[in-house]
């Protein structure tokens, strides 16, 4: 039995999400192979080789893989599929884009957002915004899975000594091309792997008021997140959205400010270790999941909180 993982990387380094997927693969059992695809990614391949638990690294270097075009990545994964029973992806925007293609081309079901490995063919995944938890079993010859990264510890970045093998590249699709990107510039930690997340909702009233959350996040070395309502209103960009259809986070501490606590939002944060909520409405559903609730106007509470963190 062996598992192939499509590694994700950025700016010459593995994305943390890939380390969580390695842990999920280790729980399945069998040999773990990381596939590193990109342009000029020798350094990523050698970093992948030292991840604990990785037996082999496949390295594919080509411009076709430079911008995570799903068509090109899926074809490459497929070219390596024969020798693996499990094919794993991180349940990130990129992984979710590629995983179903690979499953469809193998004519098997895709298994999305797995939070638990029960055995090599049985997995647990949330459905209905996490209001129900399904246990699913696959009799397909190959299991094609995306892994919810917050549900698995990160594998250690060192300790492994896998062999790196260069593999033949596949042709680029002529039906899709990358134009460009608008990436947010932030020196805050990445949302899905930060130890503390401070999120704002519609109660923030305005994008400029997120400065108050930024200042607090700065002091806590936290990431800043948001509810869908705050993103839809244009207070912050889309990548801040936490929830059923945004990012899933599970930090040590999640602070929800001016967020009501709709099920779609809870789906993205209720596995946080500690939840604190600031909301002026004592009936807000967020208080039903918060360990610590403060019923107060956020425009009074945030400046006070900012000051209290200095003490």
């Amino acid at each position: 039995m062996s598992t192939l993982i499509l590694a994700e990387h950025e700016d010459g380094a593995l994305r943390p999400a890939t380390l969580n997927v390695v842990s999920a693969a280790s729980q399945i059992g069998g040999e773990v192979t990381l596939l590193v695809a990109g342009q000029g990614v020798e350094a990523v391949a050698s970093a992948a080789a030292s991840v604990a638990g990785v037996a082999k690294v496949l390295h594919a270097d080509d411009a076709a893989y430079a911008n995570e075009i799903a068509e090109n990545l899926a074809d490459l994964v497929l070219s390596q599929a024969d020798s693996h029973e499990h094919i794993l992806f991180a349940a990130t925007a990129s992984g979710k884009n590629v995983m179903p293609r690979v499953a469809a081309m193998l004519d098997v079901a895709g298994i999305s957002d797995v939070t638990e490995v029960r055995s090599s063919d049985t997995f647990v995944r949330p459905i209905y915004a996490g209001n129900a938890i399904a246990t699913v079993q696959s009799s397909d010859a190959k299991k094609v899975v995306s892994v919810r990264t917050t549900s698995f510890e990160a594998a250690a970045e060192s300790g492994g000594s896998a062999a790196v093998e260069s593999i033949a590249t596949t042709a680029a699709s002529d039906k899709v091309s990358f134009i460009g990107q608008e990436l947010s510039q932030s020196d805050r930690p990445e949302l899905t792997s930060a130890k503390i997340v401070v999120s704002g909702g519609r109660g923030m009233q305005d994008g400029s008021n997120f400065k108050m959350l930024d200042d607090i996040a700065e002091k806590l070395n936290a990431a800043v997140g948001a509810s869908r309502a705050a993103v839809d209103a244009g207070f912050v960009p889309n990548e801040y959205q936490v929830g059923q259809t945004g990012k899933v986070v599970a930090p040590d501490l999640y602070i929800a400010v001016g967020i009501s606590g709709a099920i779609q939002h809870l789906a993205g944060m209720k596995d946080s270790k500690v939840i604190a909520a600031i909301n002026k409405d004592e009936e807000a559903p967020i208080f039903q999941v918060a360990d610590y609730g403060l019923v107060e106007d956020l425009f009074d509470a945030l400046p006070e909180l900012n000051k209290a963190l200095d003490g």
């Binding site: 079901a109 397909d140 039903q288 360990d291 107060e296 509470a301």
Partner: peptide, 22 residues
């Protein structure tokens, strides 16, 4: 080839306490 074995309720998170001040 994918069958649902069972569907369960998620673990409920208990409400904590209301604090009085920042």
């Amino acid at each position: 080839g994918l069958k649902t074995v069972e569907v369960n309720e998620p673990e409920e998170r208990e409400a904590g306490i209301i604090v009085k001040s920042v």
